[in-house]
């Protein structure tokens, strides 16, 4: 049975697609057969972050409308045999998504033996986001340390508890909070909400804190999920997050202001 995980946030630009790409890649590298689906129909991005934009022939909407089968549309990742990407359509919009269509694709993926299906939700609370979360077993809520992002995440948490199949059956989705773009220095100076404040407002178990890092942008632009950048703090934090998701106990890192040593101060770094 596949485990369906939605990566969602409410607010745009907080790192959902970056997280979906890193998360799916991390799961695949740990040996799990993983599919990642871009639900942002009309604003296709996941293929770029995954570096497979030149290999898109068929997309999610083609599969839903029966113009292609799942095998034709799934793109096998260059770096891992366990990872498959189902890109969004760029020429259609979210109205092309249907609940029956999404359900059928998820069912087919489950029958194909996928361990994890990661649903990369679009921003907002409309159709695309609603369908991305509807069938989920788990939700990764991506939040920036900023009040509007936290409030939008709170709204999404409310929807996860009411507008999902699990909720309708009286069960509940497992919720995991992932804080991204966290800058301990800016928290210390009072520009940013502290992790504790976010947890206090949202009251959801924390699964990871990804520090603000230039390597995220670099990774996006070069089409390599940041989790593959073992040198960067963001890459390491994403790896910790995946391990926690799989049940390991991993202490949180990168929460304190990094103290520069004399050597670093003299020579930069």
């Amino acid at each position: 049975m596949s485990r369906i995980v939605v990566v969602t946030s409410g607010k745009g630009g907080v790192g959902k697609t970056t997280t979906s790409a890193a998360f799916a890649t991390g799961l695949a590298l740990k040996g799990y057969k993983t599919a990642v689906i871009d639900f942002d129909v009309g604003l296709r991005n996941l293929d770029l972050i995954m570096g497979c934009e030149r290999r898109v022939v068929y997309d999610f909407i083609n599969v839903i409308s029966g113009e292609a089968n799942l095998k034709q549309a799934l793109i096998k990742d260059k770096r891992s045999d366990n990872l498959f990407i189902l890109p969004a359509s760029q020429t259609r919009d979210k109205d092309a998504l249907t609940q029956e269509g999404v359900e059928r694709v998820l069912k087919d993926l489950t029958e194909d033996g996928f361990d994890f299906i990661v649903c990369d939700s679009p921003a907002g609370i409309e159709r695309g986001a609603a369908l991305a979360m509807y069938f989920a077993d788990d939700a990764v809520i991506v939040t920036n340390p900023e009040v509007s992002s936290v409030r939008d995440s709170d709204r999404i948490l409310g929807l996860l508890q009411s507008r999902t199949r699990k909720a309708e059956r009286g069960e509940s989705i497992r919720e995991h909070l992932l804080i991204t773009r966290y800058s301990p220095a800016r928290v210390a100076s009072g520009d940013m909400l502290a992790m504790e404040d976010i947890l206090e407002i949202l009251a959801v178990p924390l699964i990871g804190v990804i520090p603000e890092s230039g390597s995220v942008l670099q990774a996006s632009n070069s089409g390599v999920p940041v989790i593959l950048d073992k040198e960067s703090t963001a890459g390491q934090a994403y790896d910790d997050f995946v391990r926690r998701f799989l049940g390991e106990t991993v202490p949180h890192r990168f929460l304190e202001v990094e103290k520069k040593g004399l050597f670093k101060r003299l020579f930069g770094g």
Binding site: R151, D154, R155, G158, I201, A203
Partner: peptide, 22 residues
Amino acid sequence: RSGQQVYCPHGDIVVLQHTSAG
């Protein structure tokens, strides 16, 4: 949560946790 509305027209409401802005 933000955006949720709880209505109990003829009785009391008891929330064992917090309520969010919105």
